[in-house]
Nucleic acid binder design. Sequence first.
DNA 1: CTGAAAGCGCTTACAG
DNA 2: CTGAAAGCGCTTACAG
Lengths: 329, 329
Amino acid sequence: MATIKDVAATAGVSVGTVSKVLSGDPTVKPALQTRVRDAVTQLGYRPNLAARALRTNMVNVIGLVVPDISNPYFAQLAKAIETEAAVRDHMVMLANSHDDKPTEHRQIMALLDRTPRGIIVCAVSDEVSDRYVTDTAIVSVDRRLSDYSLISTDHAEGSAQIADHLFGLGHRRIAYIAGPQDTFVGRARLAGFQSRIDALRQRDPAVELTIHNGHFGYQSGEDIARTIFAAPAAQRVTAIAAANDQLAIGVLRCARDLQIEVPAQVSVTGFDDIDLASLVVPRLTSFQQPMDQLAKRSIAAIFDCKAGSADVLLQGTLMVRSSSGAAQI
Amino acid sequence: MATIKDVAATAGVSVGTVSKVLSGDPTVKPALQTRVRDAVTQLGYRPNLAARALRTNMVNVIGLVVPDISNPYFAQLAKAIETEAAVRDHMVMLANSHDDKPTEHRQIMALLDRTPRGIIVCAVSDEVSDRYVTDTAIVSVDRRLSDYSLISTDHAEGSAQIADHLFGLGHRRIAYIAGPQDTFVGRARLAGFQSRIDALRQRDPAVELTIHNGHFGYQSGEDIARTIFAAPAAQRVTAIAAANDQLAIGVLRCARDLQIEVPAQVSVTGFDDIDLASLVVPRLTSFQQPMDQLAKRSIAAIFDCKAGSADVLLQGTLMVRSSSGAAQI
DNA sequence: CTGAAAGCGCTTACAG
DNA sequence: CTGAAAGCGCTTACAG
């Protein structure tokens, strides 16, 4: 492989000059710039990134830690982040925490060793822990890591909009399947839903809300739905709001197994609007997270990292589809 | 950050000795080893990987290029590879080719610049192109890159098993929805299916096979199914074998929209056995790829890279579920 | 068995 | 505006 020395020799300049041309330093005379660029092309020179990293303590890499890349939500997020990083000429180093806090910590340490430009973490839980001693920018997306700044959708507002939607359709007996309460996301969505229902109770005191604790997975949704559907039809809830799409899809699956019509007998809503939400039958009403914005703002937060930058709260969009309909009187 | 020099000073040895201890050189006296390790712990020393990379031209990274990480199949593959890489203390650098050959090429070049231990490519297409000039090991998984060695499931055999399965259930009018024929996977699956059907025709000449060209996506399956289901019920195929699960799920979706019962009126099979296959309704009969094995063997191929190592063909498992049943007489 | 020293390929003050 | 030179933190022959 050609080195910067070879380029310098070919162009008849010093290595320092080559380096300056490569970094776009405008003080180099145009004539020399051309000679250097020609030599680069002629030799097929590619800078040694390890050498650059050793000098600058920085490498064009964004670290990304997610609980589980095979979860479609994280896969879509990872794709958006990779695409956005590519725009800035950075690659993404991916790590799974397997929903395990110690693993997450090890992965972050391993990433830090590689001196990336920054690390984006979708945290397992938001329990506060010591700050990492490093110059590397760390931000969290969707699920807060300790007290690092967070880029996220306004989960509470999204849940509130779903509550409004179901109330507006005439539903008065509503079940909410919550996500894990040791996660920011799980709590925020539940809180938003609950407080909006409380507010709506002013308009109609008949509103009843039952809350179930789930795990953000298909199976969890299916299991909980089975419990809910065990109630006699007359007393059963007419709407089930799930804390994410996978839970909701589990509910749909259970409803189908039990021959319960959606939305005729029960309305079902999700959250996140993963690709799959519009592919299931019936298509799932869900709250769409602005994935591209989450990715863009996370990457931006890393590049513009003034120490202790603020949280970013993004607004999503309620996607009304055929899984929710008017309550049966 | 503490450097190797600090460790050497603290332990009262030379940096060369520290380096040897860290790399597990057994010629260092146990007493010194202990002193060095104590110093490492005391200072919280983490080796500078960029410096190491500069010397060794190698970094503990595996590059992974997939067409689209938000495709559940690639997401599951990426997870398996990341997990397997972690076992060997390597991280994964992820890149999407967005199903575009020039982008794939750029991503591979960008990865090569980072001198990873090796690169695993799930290629956009297998058109032969020039070899990359590099010492970095390159292998392809599932979809061959040019003439690099390939780790894959025996797609032809899997398709043949599905053909047997449908034939055994009494199906004689069968449709096959093929994947793109400019991909190895698309061709191998179609060829396997077709040649087994041809063989079965010896046993019953009444077997009819119609072939449709699809794109490996949900929508493509739905669109093609709509065409297939447009035929009068009496002449319609009684079984549809799709080249992957997403196509098959699209078919299921269309069948439901048109109130066609699966498997009573038509049997449907997929290929890959992504997580979703067992979550749709009815659960999808599919051919399971041995993901963990694919990941293990890919990583192994990189580490054991004798120049020009052979292809690896792994056997999968037919998963019979409720989307396929006896043909209506 | 251990240490001194060269050198990997860059970037960046600094001198001119 | 350009070049000479130091130095980033390691690893690895080599000498002793």
